[in-house]
Design a protein around this nucleic acid. Structure first.
Lengths: 179, 179
DNA sequence: CTATGATAGTCGCATCTGCAACTATCTAAA
DNA sequence: TTTAGATAGTTGCAGATGCGACTATCATAG
C-alpha cells in the first residue's frame, strides 16, 4: 500500500487550542496546494517573456503554441480540447490575435460552422522569436534537477496526467486526435 | 473532434509553411503548461469536497488550512505570506468566513493594526470533517504512483520549489517565519 | 422533406482576483 | 515631539474567465 506523502504531525500544539483530535493537513506537504503554487510561480516566471515582451496572455499563447507546433491549420474547438481551455476563452484569444493580425481564419467549406485557423506570416515570426526564449526559461527552471531527475519528473507527471485522463491516448500526434 | 484536413480547401502546409526552421515546442511536453493543466485538474477534483459540499472557495480553504494546521492564532498577513495569496484575497476570504462564523478575530493589543485570527468551534468542526476527505482525495490521485514514486515526486517538487524560493528556509515552523 | 438533436463559435453576465489607493497604526529618526 | 516611512487590512476598479444562452449549421431518424 503506497503511503501518502502528507499529513505528518509536527506542528506546534502549544496554547489553549489543544482540542484538535483528527488528522492534520500540512498545506506545504499537500500535493494539490503545492501544484497550484508551483504552477502559478512558473507561469509568473514565463509571463515576462510572452506577456511583457510580446503582449500575449496565456490563452493567446496557447493558441499560437498549438498552431505552431502542429504546423497545420485547425479549428478553435480543437485548440480548446487540446489545451483544456474553455471554448469561450479560446474564442476571445483568437479574436485578439486576429485583431493583431497574428492569426487568420478561413471558412471551412465542408462545415460552415467552423473556421480553420492559421498563423499569419507575422504570427509565425513572433512565434519563432518567442519559442527559444520560453524553452530557455523552462530549462533554467528545471536546471535545479539533474538530467535523470528531469526525466523522472516528466515521467511521473505523465503517469498522473494519464490517470486523470489528461493526455492523448495514442501517439498519432500528426493526425487529428489529441486525446 | 477535428476532421481530417481537406487539402484542396486551404493553403498547403508543407509547401508554404515549410519556412519553419527554429525549434518546435510541444505543449504536451512543456513543463509549465503541464503544471498548469495538472494543477487545474487536481483543483477541480478537490473542489467537489470543499466547494460543493462545504461552500468554500480556494482562498477560504487556505485560511482554514493555515489556522487548522498551525493550531494557533495568526494574522491575515501571515496567511497571505504562507500561502502566497494576495492580501486582498485573504481579506475577502476572512470576511466571508467571519460572516459564516467559521472564524473570529480579536484585536492585537500590541499592534492595533493587525487582528489575530482563530477558528471558531463551528469552524473547527467543519475543518475536522473536511480534512479526512481531502487527504483521501489526494491519496486517490497519487495512487497511480508507487510508494517510491510518490516520495520521489514529492522530493522533486521540493527541489523545484526550493530553487524558486517557494519554501520556508528554516524549520522554525512554530515561529513566525514561513519562508 | 421535416424534425430533433448535436456541434462550432459568439456574447452577456457574474464571479474572482490582482492592483493600487486609502485609512489607521506603528517605528524610527530628526 | 514631530515627521517620514513602513506595515496591516479594506475597498473600488478593471481585467480575465467560466457558464450558459444564443445563432447558425450539420447529421440523423422518421
Amino acid at each position: 500500500m503506497p503511503k501518502a506523502p502528507s499529513s505528518e504531525v509536527r506542528a506546534p500544539l502549544r496554547g489553549e487550542n489543544a482540542s484538535q483530535t483528527g488528522p492534520r493537513l500540512d498545506l506545504f506537504k499537500f500535493v494539490p496546494f503545492r501544484l497550484n503554487r508551483l504552477a502559478a510561480e512558473v507561469s509568473a516566471a514565463l509571463s515576462s517573456e510572452y506577456q511583457e515582451r510580446y503582449g500575449l496572455d496565456i490563452p493567446e499563447w496557447r493558441v499560437l503554441a498549438t498552431l505552431g507546433f502542429r504546423n497545420q491549420a485547425c479549428s478553435a474547438q480543437y485548440i480548446a480540447h487540446c489545451t483544456r481551455t474553455h471554448k469561450s476563452t479560446i474564442s476571445r484569444a483568437v479574436t485578439a490575435l486576429m485583431t493583431r493580425q497574428l492569426v487568420e481564419r478561413v471558412e471551412n467549406k465542408d462545415d460552415r460552422r467552423e473556421f480553420t485557423l492559421r498563423m499569419t506570416r507575422k504570427g509565425r515570426a513572433l512565434y519563432e522569436r518567442l519559442i527559444p526564449r520560453l524553452l530557455r526559461k523552462e530549462r533554467e527552471i528545471m536546471l535545479c534537477l539533474s538530467a535523470k531527475e528531469q526525466t523522472d519528473f516528466a515521467r511521473l507527471l505523465g503517469k498522473i496526467e494519464s490517470s486523470l485522463g489528461l493526455v492523448r491516448t495514442n501517439e498519432r500526434a500528426d493526425e487529428g486526435e489529441c486525446y
